[in-house]
Amino acid sequence: MELSSLNILFIGAAALLGIGMYGMLVSHNLIKIVVAIQILVKSALLAMISAGLARDEIQLSQSLALTVIVADTIVAVIGIALAVQVRRRIGTLDVRELSKLKG
C-alpha cells in the first residue's frame, strides 16, 4: 500500500482513537479519563480535517474544527471542575470508589 500523506493522517487519527479508548478503558483516575477524552476528540478533529483535505473542502472542515475545539475546551474545563469538586467532597478520584449503584 502506498503511504500517501492522506493515509498517514487517517492512520494517525485511528491511532489517537485507539489510544483514547484504551485510556478510558484502563484508567481509574478521573483526571486521566478527562485527558483520554481529550485525546479521543483530537482524533476526531484530525479525521475531520483529513476528510476535508481528501474532498477538497478544507475551508468547511477547518471552520467545523474550530467550532469543535471551542466546544471541546468547555467539555475539558467542566470535566476537570467536576473532578476537583469530586475530590473535595468525596476525597478520592478513583472511579471504582465513586460507584453508588448497588447490584
Binding site: M21, M24, I33, V95, L98, S99, L101, G103
Partner: peptide, 17 residues
C-alpha cells in the same frame, strides 16, 4: 441483567467500544 448496571465507568466505556 442487573449486574450490567455496575456503575463502573470503565465497564461502560468497554460496552460503548
Amino acid at each position: 441483567l442487573r449486574d450490567a448496571h455496575s456503575g463502573q465507568l470503565n465497564l461502560n466505556v468497554a460496552g460503548i467500544s
